[in-house]
Design a protein around this nucleic acid. Sequence first.
DNA 1: ACGTATAGTTGAAAATGTCAACGATTGAAG
DNA 2: CTTCAATCGTTGACATTTTCAACTATACGT
Lengths: 158, 158
Amino acid sequence: MTLEAQDEQRAAVKDRLVGAPITQNVGFLLAKLHAVGSIVNNRALAEFHLKERSYSVLMLAASGLEPTQREMADFLSLDPSQIVTLVDELEKRKLVARAPGKQDRRARIVTATSKGKELLAQAAIAVQRAEADVFAALDQDETGRLTALLRKALWGDA
Amino acid sequence: MTLEAQDEQRAAVKDRLVGAPITQNVGFLLAKLHAVGSIVNNRALAEFHLKERSYSVLMLAASGLEPTQREMADFLSLDPSQIVTLVDELEKRKLVARAPGKQDRRARIVTATSKGKELLAQAAIAVQRAEADVFAALDQDETGRLTALLRKALWGDA
DNA sequence: ACGTATAGTTGAAAATGTCAACGATTGAAG
DNA sequence: CTTCAATCGTTGACATTTTCAACTATACGT
C-alpha cells in the first residue's frame, strides 16, 4: 500500500465513527468542535506567545468595559486564581495593567496597554484566519446563524 | 442591600461583559457553551460514576461499530494513552470488554457488555435531561438547526 | 526475511483545575 | 463608631489532565 493510500484509509476510518449515536448529542458536537478549534487557535496564537486563555483576557482588557478580575473569572468560567496567573503574565509583558477599582478598592480593573492593543490587533487577524479554516464547510450565512444560536443559548439573545 | 438584591446585581454584572467584542468570536462562544455544558453533563453523570469522557467511550463501545482504541482516540481527539486509562476503568467495572482486532491483532476492539448497555441507557436519559437545561433558551427547531450546523462544520454533512 | 510503521501500554513531566486559607477592604447592623 | 460577616485578589497545596517518549507485539511492503 502506498503512503497516500494509507492516509486515505486513515481518514476513512476516522470518519467511520461518525455514524455512532453519540454524534447526535449536541454537547458532544460542541466538545469536539471546540477541541478542533482550540488546537487551531492555539497554533495561530503561538507566534504571539498567547494562548486561548490569555487571548480572551487580553480581549476583555481591551474592550473598554474595564472588567475586574472577578468579572473575568465569572465570564470565562475560570477560577479567580487562574485569572491571577494569566494577568500576572500579561502584566509582566506590559500588555495589560492593573488598577484599583474606583468604588471598590479590593477589586482590580484590568486594562490593555497600547502595546497590548497593538499585539491584540495582530493576533485577532490570525485568529480570524484560523477560524475561517475550522468553519470552512460553512458559508458566511451559516456561520452567522451558528453564532446567533450559540449566543442565544448562552444569554437568551434575540 | 438585601441578599437577593446582591444576587441580582451579581447576575447583572456577570452579563455586563456580554457586550465585549470577543463574544462575536465563534470559537469563544463554542468554548464557553462547552464549559457550561461540561459542568452540567458531569453533574448528571456523577450518579453513574461516569464523566463526559467515559460516557463517550461507553457510547462508542455500545454503538455496534466495533471501534478500536486508536479509532476512539482519533475520534475523541484524545491521546491513545488516555483511552487506555478510560477503557481500563470501564473494563474493571465490567461495562466494556476488550477483544483483539479481527484482521489486526495489535488493535483492541472495545464493546459494551450488557451491563454497560444497561447503565448507558440510564445515563443517556440523565444526559438528555441535563442538556435540555443547557439549551433551554432554544426551542426544538433551533436545537436541531444548531446540531445540523455543528455536524456540517465537523464533517461537511449535507 | 528484513526493515519500517503502527496499536496499545507504561511512566514521567508539564500544564491545568480545584480548593482552602489569608490580608485588605467593604457594607450592614447595632 | 465599632463590630461582624462577606467579598476581592492572592498564595500555596493538592488532584486531575495533557503531553510525550519509550517499549513490546504485530503488521506489511520490499
